[in-house]
Design a binder for these strands. Structure first.
Lengths: 253, 253
DNA sequence: TAGATTGTTAATCGATTAACAATC
DNA sequence: TAGATTGTTAATCGATTAACAATC
């Protein structure tokens, strides 16, 4: 069934937000954590769980968990808690983890190898459909059972994938150095991926319709060092009282 | 000079926020990108740059860039743009990248190796002061010139670091599987690190005073697949008009 | 002075929390 | 019914943007 509905955006009812699955990023991040928790609970034989229990184990407010779950499309839950099995399925579905996601990985260095070897991704539906590198020394070597191919042959390889297996990869994973990232991205889009998962510390210019998610380890490192910096500096926070050092040349007083 | 100042938090003046360096996370992430841009500009011989120029290259609003820079403590900039050299130094300082950060890395697999080998981190001040793994086959092997040691010998190793080189590592990097992450974290805290950089998909319980920054590749993957999901689903957004598919069993109408 | 720029306050937008109604 | 729970609206908190003043 397919509907066209016209609603004033500013006064959109709650369930509509649900139905359009307009989930925001912080919610998605948390949903993956709930999923991990729920899968562990399932193996322990737990069949029903309350949002307070989930919230507790992540130091979150129960309301936030409820909201996240409702964003994920978990409606009509019984009033004595959520059923673990259903919840797992609903979250998986809302994340797009209920079906295979075929990906091409370019850059067979340590980072690329780590991604290929990590079983966690496979459990979330990631299928590495091809690995490529420009280094001839790597061509033909195996990573977790997958052969590494020449990056130059990617077009032809993907044609083969489509004709022989009916697979057209949706995701391109970039684990090459920053200076070749754009070039790789362009080629990946050329062979038809709709999304780029970028591990290179580079800003990519991509067509509007291409989804891009970047993992920036440097940004993460910055958050870490900045927090250490905060601890080191005299700046302390006690109620309303500040204690801090001033540069002697400072004009602020 | 060291001051104690008492200010009502709700009505804190702008420059005070500056001085306490209470920078928020999104700002820090962006500052690393500005830094990359500025370093590249510097090598091209650019000496002065306006915030609009920076903003433009990242598709951000110039005001946001100005605010970020002001958070980073860049005050008293001339009115014809920021001086590139000063700006780089100020950002590096505000991120804590103006001095060495000594780290112990536990888990010498592909991910750990990728971190050790990536020169980008070294440029931001990261010094790998020791690599450890529980796998005896790895003991004594070299990663980028660093020897891998037995995890069991970490206490003794760190003692040696302190006595011989006067180095006490502040950061512990965890690149082990999820099920041993907590154990590794406990040991790292025991040997005196003040911050944990966690790459394992596990929630760690840590003392309050320990800084923790987690890199969750699964969360990133979820954001990617969810966005693909959004594209796939019939849900489209045209002005105020929705088009979406309804489950035939749905009670919503 | 005009133009280009920075810096600050106020307004908006987005995400989380508080309060409470509804249900089993 | 009382207790435990979910689901929703309103309020708060945080981050970004708009508007504008100030400066070279």
């Amino acid at each position: 069934m397919r509907l066209h509905i016209f609603i004033p955006l500013d006064n959109r009812p709650y369930y509509m937000v649900n139905n359009t699955r307009n989930v925001h990023t912080p919610s998605i991040r948390r949903l993956t954590r709930y999923l991990r928790f729920l899968r562990a609970a399932k193996t322990r034989g737990v069949t029903v769980v309350s949002c307070s229990r989930i919230a507790e184990s992540f130091n979150l407010s129960p309301v936030l968990v409820r909201r996240d779950l409702s964003f994920a499309g978990v409606l009509a839950a019984p009033k004595q808690g959520y059923r673990v099995n259903e919840l797992i399925e609903d979250i998986e579905q809302s994340l797009g983890w209920d079906h295979k996601t075929h990906a091409l990985l370019v850059g067979a260095g340590n980072l690329g190898s780590a991604i290929v070897k990590y079983n966690g991704f496979r459990e979330q539906g990631l299928n590495i459909a091809g690995i490529f590198d420009s280094d001839p020394n790597l061509h033909g070597t195996l990573i977790n059972g997958h052969k590494v191919f020449s990056f130059e042959k990617i077009v032809e390889y993907v044609k083969g994938l489509k004709s022989e297996y009916g697979i057209s990869p949706d995701v391109g994973i970039i684990t090459v150095p920053a200076d070749s990232a754009q070039e790789v991205a362009d080629k990946l889009i050329e062979v038809g991926v709709r999304a780029i998962w970028n591990y290179a510390p580079a800003r990519l210019s991509l067509p509007e319709n291409i989804v891009c998610e970047s993992v920036s380890l440097c940004e993460s490192f910055a958050i870490l060092t900045h927090q250490l910096q905060m601890q080191d500096s005299g700046a302390t926070f006690k109620g309303h009282e500040f204690e801090f050092s001033l540069d002697p040349n400072s004009t602020i007083c």
